[in-house]
Design a protein around this nucleic acid. Structure first.
Ligand SMILES: [Mn+2]
Ligand SMILES: [Mn+2]
Ligand SMILES: [Mn+2]
Ligand SMILES: [Mn+2]
Lengths: 140, 140
DNA sequence: AATATATTGTAGCCTGTGCTACATTCTAGG
DNA sequence: CCTAGAATGTAGCACAGGCTACAATATATT
C-alpha cells in the first residue's frame, strides 16, 4: 500500500523544489506579458497584478535580478535578461498547454484558468509532452 | 491579451493560499496512511518519508496540532483528530483522482505519481468533478 | 543491570515571502 | 515653476519551514 520510503521522499522533495521556483516563474511570465503588450513593466503594475504590496514586489524583483533573470534601474521599470526571456517563453507555453488540457477534459474555462496558475509549476516535461499528444489526438 | 487586473490578482492569490495548505495536506495524508497500514505514525518515519529532518517534521506536527488536525503525547506517536481524518480522506481521494486523470491522458505512471504530489493541491472541486466525469466516460 | 543505540524533543540559525510605515524621487496640473 | 500626488524604494517586523547541534528519553543488547 505505502510506496517505498526513498521514492516517496523524492516525490515530496521534487514538489518542494518545484514550488521554490514558482514565484520566479510567475514573475517572469507576467513581466514578459507586460513588456509584450506595448508597455513597460513597472513595479506597481506588477504588484497590482500579483495582488501583493509594492514592497513585496520590489523585493521579489530584487531576487529576480540576483538570479540573473531581470534587470532594472532606478525608476526605469523592469526588463528581462535573455535567460529571463527564455524562461518566460517556456513558462507561457506550459501555462497555455495546461489550460488547454484542463479544458479538453471538461474543466470549465474560468476554472481552468484559476487552477492552472498553481498547477503549471508542477507539470514535468514528460507530462507536458503527453498533454500535447492528447490534445493533438483529440483535435482530429 | 492580458487578463483583467483584478482577475489576475485573484488567480495568484488563490494559488498562494492553496500552497499555504499543501504542507498540512501532505502531512495528514501521510499520517493517515501510516496509521492505516497497521502501525503508528512516529515523527521519525514521517520525517524520513517526507525527506526532511526530524526537527522539521516535529515543528510541522506542532502546527498540525495547533490547527486542530492532529494530537500527540510525548513519545507516543501522532494521531489525527476527526477533522484531520476527514481532511486526509478528501486529500487521498483527490490525489488518486489526479493520478488517474494524468495516466488517462497518457502521462507515464511513474511520472504521474511524481507530478501529482504537487499538482493535487491546486485542483479545485469543479476540476475534480470534471476529472471524474472524464474518467467515467472513458471507462465505458 | 548497565550500556549503547535510536528516537524524540529543544534551541537557535537562515531564507523566503508576506506586511506596514516612512522616505525619496518623478511627474503632471495649475 | 511649484507643488500635490503617484510611483518607487527602504527599514523593520512576522511567520513558515528548512537546517544543525545538542539534550533528554526510551528501547534494545549484552
Ligand atoms: Mn503560476
Ligand atoms: Mn502562469
Ligand atoms: Mn502533495
Ligand atoms: Mn498526496
Amino acid at each position: 500500500m505505502l510506496p517505498d520510503e526513498a521514492d516517496q521522499a523524492q516525490r515530496f522533495e521534487k514538489a518542494r523544489s518545484a514550488q521554490a521556483g514558482a514565484l520566479l516563474e510567475d514573475y517572469v511570465e507576467l513581466i514578459d506579458d507586460l513588456l509584450g503588450s506595448g508597455g513597460e513593466a513597472r513595479p506597481t503594475d506588477i504588484a497590482r497584478r500579483l495582488g501583493v504590496s509594492h514592497a513585496t514586489a520590489i523585493k521579489s524583483i530584487a531576487r529576480l535580478k540576483r538570479e540573473g533573470l531581470a534587470t532594472s534601474k532606478l525608476y526605469r521599470g523592469v526588463f528581462l535578461t535573455p535567460e529571463g526571456h527564455d524562461l518566460a517563453a517556456r513558462v507561457r507555453a506550459r501555462h497555455r498547454l495546461v489550460v488547454d488540457l484542463l479544458i479538453a477534459v471538461g474543466v470549465p474555462e474560468r476554472c481552468a484558468e484559476l487552477d492552472a496558475e498553481g498547477i503549471e509549476h508542477h507539470v514535468s516535461e514528460a507530462a507536458l509532452a503527453a498533454f500535447a499528444r492528447f490534445l493533438e489526438a483529440k483535435r482530429k
